[in-house]
Design a protein around this nucleic acid. Structure first.
Lengths: 178, 178, 178, 178
DNA sequence: TATGAATGAGAATTCATTCAT
DNA sequence: GATGAATGAATTCTCATTCAT
């Protein structure tokens, strides 16, 4: 609902009706309307983090690990256009929301990406002249931007995974040591 | 004000007071509160587009042109933390706002970047195996993500221009034909 | 709880928790939240009435009987600051509550005081030129006001019984026939 | 409206309609619904205080001054049954309201009465063996109780001023030095 | 008897917008 | 053009009460 109508335009009573419960019941499980949005985000980013850690454990080379990150971030949203819209668009409704709740969890995610880069640099696979954290922010932003334009546009099925391969190609060849 | 408190948390009366006019006066110049935000965005993106076109005219090689894009997008926000926050965070109020007003102008901007890529591919400078539009979305997203994390974090002076160089290095070597 | 937080600010669930039972259990013993307050009041005023009647039976002279009334009304609350607050403050929730439930019982109480006065007048002990009912209302109000200011203030231990003696002195010498 | 329906049972929108303004307009003049009630009380008690001080200035003897207090407190409500109900009943809805807002102004009023008593004691007119503040609380309570029973009952015209004379007789002869 | 999760009616308050001055 | 007092629609959240277990 947040994706379709926007967070502020969505009434709690609509969420309740869609969930098949009474208005008050929402408040037995969520502290406030804000909490509803934040929980959605946290659920997903924690899921992403957990899945990512597990997947990374199976990929030995830095190249594979980076592709893994890219595939997972876009994969989380593939087929879930509404979720993509909530996370890339609606979540950013208010700075307060972002700073207070989303930022900490989000930083954990950036840290994970940065660690992949740093390890690749240490092993000599990636160029050492760039900041791992900056690269992490670049990668996150690139994928987020792709998801956003995908969600706001036609959101074609399979579009994100096709994008993932190309983006990975470009970023990887930009990061590999010469 | 939108940046500091969020669009919805900012009252029109606060904007009026900050501008030193009466509440009603706002409505002599803007159709609605939404219009206030959209105008802000349009002003800036049109400025960015115009400045970018002018700057691109002076850069002959695709490499220089791409660096130019990167420097300008981040440069627009350098030193204007609040503006960065409005554009990367607050503007994403609602899908309606994005789709109806921001998207068209935004597409013009993506088109400009895509054109730079396509020209680079045609001239043989950039690898031909990636979609110019996808690369444009990647570049925009990367820069937007950097600006967002910069704005939400400490927003250190000079941070964005230092970032620009490194991002340009990575993206360029990822895009150059072998 | 009603005394500490006010009747409207006290949730039934808080009363239930304080009583160590589940919310629903309250409704097995009380018809409604209002009933909770009314029962509290009725319990106490009936207790006061019964105790008062018993005590009055032992005091032969009008003077003693009047002192008895004063001591009992203030004595009921001595050491029970919360109860004093409920009766003097919180019970006055709404005119409806007062008129419908409290007033009848309350009138019984005023009647008892008025009877003490009337008997004193008949016996020649009290001045005959004042209405017994008006005097009863005066006495009740005076004691209620003392209890209220005591409850809203520091509610010092022993404060009410010390007050009782002085008030009785004043009222008695005001009522005695010349 | 508060008197007729009780404070909690009265909706702000009803007050607004009765006042012939829109709901929101209430909030341009009062901070909250509570403030509406408190303002009513403060207005009146300040009026009472001012009128009382002025009237007291014209009465030389302690006896006259005490009668003056009694006449004014009951006189304020004479003919204003609703106001009497608000002040004696509705205002006492919550301890918070009383303690936080009403108490300070109320104490000023009690102080004024106590001063009348203390002066009477100093001049030798009143018995010296009772606390002026306790007597003030007694007098206030007696009058408040009379007003309350009057408001909750038939509230006959002229009832309060007739009561005033009798109460003054009793209290005065109770207070005069022997 | 006791429970406590679910209910949903209800109300205070906010704030974008208007328009008489 | 500018003002800012007044508007009133709109919405979150609370909490007394119920009832299946």
């Amino acid at each position: 609902m947040f994706a379709r109508k926007g967070f502020y335009a969505t009434k709690v009573s609509e969420v309740a009706k869609a969930a098949g419960v009474a208005d008050g019941t929402i408040y037995l499980y969520f502290k406030s309307k804000d909490d509803l949005l934040v929980s959605l985000f946290e659920d997903r980013i924690m899921l992403l983090l957990a899945t990512l850690e597990r997947a990374l454990a199976l990929r030995p080379t830095p190249q594979e690990r980076l592709r893994c990150v890219i595939e997972m971030q876009l994969g989380l949203l593939e087929g879930e256009r509404d979720l993509a819209e909530v996370i890339t668009v609606n979540l950013r409704q208010s700075t307060r929301l972002m700073k207070q709740y989303a930022a900490p969890k989000f930083m954990l995610y950036l840290d994970t990406i940065a660690r992949v880069i740093a390890e690749g640099q240490k092993s000599g696979a990636f160029r050492p002249d760039v900041s791992p954290h900056l690269v992490a922010r670049t990668i996150f932003g690139a994928l987020d931007g792709i998801a956003m334009t995908w969600a706001l546009g036609k959101a074609e099925a399979g579009g994100l995974s096709r994008a993932a391969t190309q983006v990975a190609d470009v970023l990887l060849s930009g990061l590999l040591a010469k």
